[in-house]
Design a protein around this nucleic acid. Structure first.
Lengths: 232, 232
DNA sequence: CGCCGTATTGAGCGCTCTCAACGAGGGTGG
DNA sequence: CCACCCTCGTTGAGAGCGCTCAATACGGCG
C-alpha cells in the first residue's frame, strides 16, 4: 500500500484508546469523568493551565492557535480514540492551543493527579508515551518542511489525504467517507486563506479529483492526490 | 527579563550535558567514543538508520532536511552541551534529518545498545527525556505557527534572537558574541531565499539594529529585534 | 420566510521568489 | 609572496503566488 508514506505526516495511533492495555482501559473507565461538548464549545483556551488529559469517546475536536489579528492555525484534529492534552501536563507548561469541538463530542477527562497516578502505575504507558512523543516529533518536523517548502496546492493535497485517513478510521459506515469540515477549518489546517482554499478545491473538482457536496468532500482519485502531494 | 518569551521558541537545555546527573556523565565518559568532524563533514544523512546518539563536546552542527530540488531547511543548530539523535532511535525510525558540522566539532558518540542500557539504568534520564520531548513538542508547534503566520521579517528577527542566545550560551569569551553563520545557513534556518535574507539583513544594518562584519552579525538593539519579532 | 453564518467569485496588489550579473574575500598552489 | 580560483555575498529586475478587500450567492435553522 502506497499510503504508508502518509505515516510520516500523520499522527499514528500510538497512544490511542485501542492501544491501551485492558488494565489501563479499565482503570480509566473507573476514574475518568465524562465531559460533553456541544458543537463549537470550547474545552479550554490556549495559555490556560492544564488540569486534565482527555480521550475522545465520540465526536471531533480541533486544536487551534489563535493570533492577535484574529487568524487561526489548526494544528490537529482529534477524533474518536485519540488521546490529547498530556504534553503540556508533562512539561509543566500552559496549553499551547485551544481545543474546540467541531461536532458534538464526548470525552473521558482524567484529572492531572489521576493521570500521574496512572503514569507511575503503568510503565507500559510511560514507555508508550516516550515512543509516541518521539514519533510525533518527527511528524512535526515533516510538517514544518511542508509549510516552508511546499506551495498551497501541495499542502492541500496532503491535507486531504491525511484527513481522509483520519475520518475513515472512525467512520461507522460502509459507504465512502467524505471529509466534513467548514472551509475555514480546512483553510486554517492547510495554512492558507479561505478564498485561496475555495479556489483550489474548485480546481480539484473540475479535474474530477474531488466531488463536493456542500461541506462534504469526497476523494474520487486518491492516486492523483498522492501525485499532487508529491511526497518523498 | 523579557527574554523568557524566547523559551517558547528555543530549545531549552532540558537534556544537555550539564543537566545530566554526575553518575550519568561518568557513565558516558566511560562508554562513549569521541568522534571528530571537520567543517562541512557529514555525520549522517537523512533516511539513514540511526546507530547512536550524540553529545556535542565542542563545535557546532546543523540538522538539515534536503529537498529533491536541492533546497534545504535547517531545523536545528546543536552546540556545545546539546544532546541529539535520540528521538528516531526511541521511535525506531530513520533519521529525519542530516547532520553536518558547520565548524570543527567533537562529539561523544553513544551507540544504540549503550544508550538503551543507560536509559534503563537511569530512570532520571528517561523522565528527563519524557519531559523534554513534551517541551520540545510545544516549541515545534510555535515554530509551525511562525512559519505559517509570520512574514520573513518577523521570522528573521526571532531567528536572530534565538541564535544569539544559543551562541552566547557557549561563548568562551567576555566580548559581545556575534552570530557566525553563512548567509545560506541563516536563510535555510529562517526559511527564506538567500537573496531575501541578504536584503533584510541590509535593512537591519541601515537601521542600526545590527552590525555586520562579514559572517559576523552583532546585535546592537536587542529591544528593537524583540519588537520586530512581535512575540505573544 | 427571513436571517445569519458559510461559501463563492472577482480584482488588485505586495511580498518574496527566481534569474542573472557582479563583487569580494580567503585559501591554495605555483 | 602573489596570482588565481572558488566559494560566498550583494544587488537589480521581473514575475507570480497567494493575500486582502469587496460584493454576491447559498443554505440551514429558527
Amino acid at each position: 500500500m502506497e499510503y504508508t508514506v502518509l505515516r510520516k505526516y500523520n499522527f499514528g495511533s500510538d497512544v490511542s484508546w485501542s492501544n491501551l492495555s485492558a488494565v489501563d482501559q479499565e482503570w480509566i473507565k473507573l476514574h475518568a469523568t465524562i465531559k460533553h461538548l456541544a458543537k463549537k464549545e470550547i474545552l479550554f483556551e490556549q495559555d490556560s493551565t492544564p488540569i486534565a488529559v482527555y480521550f475522545v469517546r465520540r465526536g471531533k475536536v480541533k486544536a487551534i492557535r489563535s493570533n492577535t489579528d484574529g487568524s487561526n492555525q489548526v494544528l490537529f484534529f482529534y477524533v474518536e480514540g485519540d488521546f490529547f492534552g498530556y504534553r503540556p501536563l508533562l512539561a509543566e507548561e500552559l496549553q499551547p492551543v485551544s481545543i474546540v469541538a467541531i461536532e458534538p463530542t464526548d470525552l473521558f477527562q482524567i484529572s492531572k493527579s489521576r493521570f500521574r497516578e496512572l503514569l507511575s502505575a503503568s510503565t507500559s504507558l510511560s514507555e508508550q508515551l516516550l515512543v509516541s512523543l518521539s514519533r510525533e516529533f518527527g511528524i512535526l518536523v515533516n510538517r514544518i518542511i511542508n509549510f516552508t517548502q511546499r506551495d498551497t496546492r501541495h499542502r492541500l493535497a496532503l491535507a486531504l489525504l491525511l484527513l481522509h485517513e483520519k475520518f475513515v478510521s472512525v467512520a461507522h459506515t460502509e459507504a465512502e467517507t467524505p471529509i466534513v469540515l467548514t472551509r475555514s477549518d480546512l483553510a486554517d489546517y492547510v495554512g492558507t486563506s479561505l478564498e485561496t482554499l475555495v479556489r483550489l478545491l474548485g480546481e480539484l473538482k473540475e479535474q474530477n479529483v474531488l466531488k463536493i457536496e456542500g461541506k462534504k468532500i469526497f476523494i474520487l482519485q486518491m492516486r492523483k492526490l498522492l501525485e499532487l502531494a508529491d511526497l518523498h
